[in-house]
């Protein structure tokens, strides 16, 4: 499998009124051809900033202070603004969170969908509109020919997100970055959008980076999952590994706070106490330590490196150090371990 995107040691700073916020503090990840990578984390953990750095669509007060973003081996951070314009919407495109605000309210849908084609290809307006119509049909807008002349406000939220997706895929991008594309939608619509993305991935063979804070959504779409906390990845691996053999206490906390089919009305959902650290002055040790019930002395002094769990599964927690004490994860996590064991053994047989 070819790595089409390889992000190395990414650091992003924001200059704010109160000082410099170190929003991304050394992130490494890669994206394989044709796969879906989900990045999970609570709001403010830096997921959006990470993927926006790939497209270099950061706010004016942000700067990428270190790192490389290799796209087919070329560092996007060294490209000119013009070269980036040629990539955006063409090779790499993006789907935004809020479909209610991400469409130009005064431009017809047809023109908005056709726009990337007209920017990147030498096509006639008529051909571009024709292609736009096809794509609108593909994403499930009924009667696209007539509706191309409509304005965004004439569509429902779910339909608008389909249109945003149509804009993103109209030029067959290699990489599709979806920044919480379902968060602003109703639950039923969420499922439709996930299905649509999966279906489109099969049809046009694009790779997807999918950002969400909702672990429930991840299981349905991702091949691999990366868990992010306070500007760093804390654990990554295949969906099964992260869901059923999680190693980082933060991942435990996330999974433990998720309702399952077995959660009855009397059960209280568990939550992770406390709030994420202030990244104006990032802690010297593990950023999660203050909220971590399993924190070790070393966590407050030194950041944990990634420990290898399997060939594809890594976690940054001192608990994986050979010298670390054995801890008992929450009950729900133990049940996951059991399922995973049973599943692995079943597989072996």
């Amino acid at each position: 499998m070819e790595r089409i995107l390889d992000v190395k040691n990414l650091h992003v700073d924001f200059k704010t009124y109160n000082g410099t916020v170190h929003a991304i503090r050394g992130v490494d990840f890669h994206l394989n051809d044709g796969e879906t990578l989900a990045i999970v984390g609570e709001s403010g953990s830096g997921k959006s900033v990470t993927v926006r750095s790939v497209l270099r669509l950061l706010a004016k007060n942000a700067s990428i202070s270190q790192g490389e973003v290799l796209y087919h081996g070329e560092d996007l951070l060294k490209k000119s603004e013009k070269e980036m314009d040629n990539l955006r919407g063409n090779k790499i495109s993006m789907i935004f969170q809020d479909p209610m605000t991400s469409l130009d309210p005064t431009m017809t849908i047809g023109k908005q969908v056709a726009e990337p084609l007209l920017i990147h290809n030498k096509v006639s307006k008529a051909d571009a509109l024709k292609r736009a119509e096809e794509v609108l049909r593909l994403v499930g807008i009924p009667n696209p020919k007539a509706r191309m002349k409509d304005y965004p406000h004439q569509f429902s939220g779910g339909q608008r997100q389909r249109i945003v997706i149509a804009i993103a895929i109209v030029d067959y991008p290699e990489i599709l970055i979806a920044d919480e594309p379902t968060t602003a939608l109703d639950v039923t619509v969420q499922a439709q959008i996930i299905d649509l993305l999966r279906e489109l991935q099969q049809k046009i063979g694009t790779s997807i980076i999918f950002i969400t804070h909702d672990l429930g959504v991840v299981a349905g779409i991702a091949d691999r999952v990366a868990v992010m906390y306070a500007g760093k990845f804390v654990e990554y691996g295949s969906v099964d590994e992260v869901f059923y053999d999680p190693q980082h206490p933060y991942t435990w906390g996330l999974l433990d706070s998720m309702p399952t089919l077995n959660t009855s009305e009397q059960d209280r959902l568990n939550s992770i106490p406390g709030t994420p650290p202030n990244l104006l002055n990032p802690p010297t040790g593990d950023a999660f330590a203050p909220r971590n019930a399993y924190a070790l002395q070393i966590d407050t002094e030194q950041q944990p490196p990634f420990f290898k769990v399997t060939k594809t599964h890594y976690a940054a927690t001192w608990l994986l150090h050979p010298d670390a004490p054995k801890v008992t994860p929450p009950v729900s996590i133990q049940q996951r371990f059991k399922k995973y064991q049973a599943w692995l053994e079943g597989d072996v047989k």
Binding site: L57, K82, S93, F96, Q97
Partner: peptide, 23 residues
């Protein structure tokens, strides 16, 4: 948000202004 989307489509800064922001 729609200006950011326009930028993510590959519009140059000038095109973003003339095609979307001004109107």
């Amino acid at each position: 948000d729609y200006i950011e989307l326009a930028k993510s489509k590959g519009n140059s800064n000038w095109q973003v202004v003339t095609k979307h922001a001004l109107r």
